[in-house]
């Protein structure tokens, strides 16, 4: 019965891609997960992909015990500031990065294991009025923060033991940067979306702000999730929390837009529409797949290149879905319920 409840519903006429339930974990001491992610962790001589779950005041590390069971390794207790988000750092091991704050991010912390004194620790990376943060390849973390006078966009590089090695400042645009995204296949390029609905492009090696391009008035408050450079164009996966429904493309939670960085002109490439009868979204993008929790309590998955919804996890009797995140590696979706259950699906 449980397996049946968890079987994803494929929508009419779509491809055979689907979600297969691999395993699930439940933290009996925790309710209402804030975020979930994966991290590589060294233990007993081998490197394992572990699951990290965040509640408002604690973050737990889970390691695989058997194909379908998970054991809690450690729980870090945080202070009075609530945990908002786990920030995946794609190629870091034995280290979890989290954002804490109320409405906005006030602190970024590292949670780690120190072999020097055989203990689990936490350390402060940054404080301030942080608007956006993103983990990059090669153990780098980029964040944008704002004071009344100025905006700072900064990249911090970590050592393997989690120490901050050096920082680099990027030229800030005049507009406040609200989201950041890597450009797949271009290590030195970074994009951001701003409060006035522009895309900005940086050269992170030199810190130069290369271009500012307007997204358009039809889709205000766009958020960038991922970018891809191909054939002289910059393809950006955007979500639009405040887009109005239109006859031509419905109510697209995700769009891929092609920008010509030389001319700042753009065209829409694909629109990923919500399944019929669903509204609202909170999304995550990995490679070319997007996932979002809908206001109905379902999770939807899209192929952004096709602009198609490929799977839908309906809310079951066990409760609505509240979280949908892609694992840092492979095609694995982590879906969380209000009661603290996290299900792992292979996509």
């Amino acid at each position: 019965e449980v397996a049946e409840q968890l079987t994803p519903v494929l929508l009419d006429g779509l491809r055979e891609e689907t979600l297969q339930l691999v395993s699930k974990l439940k933290d009996p001491s925790s309710c209402c997960p804030v975020d979930v992610s994966t991290v590589w962790w060294d233990g007993a001589g081998c490197r394992e992909l572990c699951v990290v779950t965040a509640a408002e005041s604690s973050v737990s590390l889970w390691k695989p015990l058997a194909p379908d069971s998970w054991g809690k390794v450690y729980t870090w207790q945080l202070g009075e500031i609530p945990v908002i988000q786990i920030i995946p750092l794609p190629d870091m091991c034995n280290l979890v990065c989290i954002a804490l704050g109320d409405l906005e991010i006030a602190e970024i912390r590292l949670l780690l294991y120190s072999s020097e004194n055989d203990s689990f620790k936490q350390s402060l990376v940054k404080t301030g009025n942080i608007k956006a943060v993103l983990g990059l390849k090669d153990r780098r973390l980029v964040s944008s923060s704002r004071t009344v006078q100025e905006q700072q966009v900064e990249i911090v590089t970590f050592s393997e033991t989690g120490r901050s090695k050096d920082g680099q400042t990027l030229m800030p645009p005049e507009e406040t940067v609200l989201a950041l995204a890597e450009v797949e296949g271009m290590r030195d390029a970074l994009v951001g979306t701003t409060a006035l609905n522009s895309i900005v492009v940086w050269n992170v090696k030199t810190g130069q702000l290369l271009k500012k391009m307007h997204v358009g008035y039809s889709y205000p408050a766009s958020i960038c999730h991922r970018a891809y450079s191909d054939s002289g164009l910059l393809f950006v996966a955007l979500s639009h929390p405040h887009a109005k429904e239109s006859k031509s493309c419905g109510n697209p939670p995700f769009r891929v837009v092609a920008f010509n960085p030389k001319t700042a002109r753009s065209v829409g490439v694909t629109f990923s529409s919500l399944p019929p009868g669903h509204a609202g979204r909170q999304g995550d993008v990995q490679d070319t797949w997007a996932a979002a929790v809908l206001s109905s309590g379902a999770v939807a998955v899209w192929d952004l290149l096709l602009g198609q919804c490929t799977a839908l996890l309906p809310p079951g009797p066990a409760g609505s879905w509240v979280l949908a995140r892609w694992a840092t590696t492979g095609a694995c979706l982590l879906a969380g319920r209000r009661d603290g259950t996290v299900c792992l699906y292979r996509y």
């Binding site: 030195d188 030199t206 271009k211 164009l233 010509n260 030389k262 002109r265 065209v267």
Partner: peptide
């Protein structure tokens, strides 16, 4: 996407914009 929509496309846009942008 065509050049009529997007203007002249350059495969080396990143290097060209880096050469043009203020340091």
């Amino acid at each position: 996407c065509s050049e009529s929509d997007l203007g002249p496309i350059s495969l080396n846009w990143f290097e060209e914009l880096s050469a043009e942008a203020p340091p």
